[in-house]
Simulated scan of single mutants.
Amino acid sequence: MSNEGVTVLQTFRDAMIGLPLSHVWRGGGSAIFLQFGRLTPRTRHSGEAGNPTGELGLMIQWSWRIENTASILCGSWSEEHLWAPAFDLLRNKVVVDLSVVGRLPEIVIALTEGLYVSSFMTAEGDPQWAVFDRRDSALRTLSVKQGILKLDVGPSPLL
């Protein structure tokens, strides 16, 4: 990983450690969204309440798993009835580490009580995850593009 990639990852890591996993929800298909820290309510275009967003968030589009210290509890290819109980285990646990592993960066979030959320892409292309930092007026997004960590900065959609 480049020095720039290490620096960017460390910035997100420092911001996320110590935050609780406040909300987790399933998106389309097997996508999951984890929201950390203080939650902000969202309203859909239809006027209905949407899922809240955290100060920081993680999206894994597909190929993910939830682990404890001894086994895989469930993953994107598991029976869907296993997902909700695993999501319940994650809620309110505190982030103790954020790291990337592998030649093509896959993300790992370590939580209290020995729980982990990991991405692991199994199709062609880049790993399909992104971390969002919504704490300022600019939305900062960390993801993988062409096999390397990429930081994008843009206006926050919440302001």
Rank of each mutant, 00 (worst) to 15 (best):
P105F: 00
S63V: 06
E80R: 15
V144G: 00
S119H: 01
I60G: 11
T112I: 03
L104C: 05
F120S: 08
R91P: 03
S156V: 08
Q10H: 05
R44K: 13
T7L: 04
W62R: 15
V24G: 10
T11W: 06
S46T: 15
M16A: 11
V8E: 00
L104R: 00
W62Y: 15
G75T: 01
L58R: 14
S137K: 13
C74T: 05
A86D: 11
R38C: 03
A84C: 00
L159K: 07
N3R: 14
L151G: 09
L39F: 01
G47P: 12
L90D: 06
S76L: 02
V108K: 05
Q61V: 02
D97W: 05
L111S: 08
R140H: 14
F120V: 03
G29C: 03
S63Q: 06
N3E: 14
L21M: 10
L149G: 05
L142M: 03
G54K: 00
I17Y: 08
I107D: 00
P52K: 07
R65E: 12
K93T: 14
L73A: 04
L89Y: 05
T112N: 06
S143C: 12
E55F: 07
G125P: 09
G18D: 08
G47W: 01
A123D: 09
Q128H: 07
P41D: 02
L98F: 09
F36K: 04
L149S: 05
M16L: 14
L158Q: 06
R13V: 04
P85T: 02
K145G: 05
M1G: 11
A70D: 15
G27M: 02
L139W: 02
S156N: 15
L142V: 00
K145R: 14
A49K: 15
T11G: 09
L73D: 10
I107C: 10
T69F: 07
I148P: 01
D133G: 12
R135D: 10
K145L: 12
D126Q: 03
K93N: 14
L39H: 06
L19C: 05
W62H: 15
R44S: 07
Q146N: 14
T122S: 13
G28T: 04
R26S: 07
S2R: 11
V95Y: 12
L19H: 13
V6H: 15
A31D: 02
N92A: 05
T43E: 13
I17M: 01
R44N: 14
E48T: 09
V153Q: 12
W129I: 10
A31I: 00
L142P: 09
A70F: 10
I72H: 03
R42N: 09
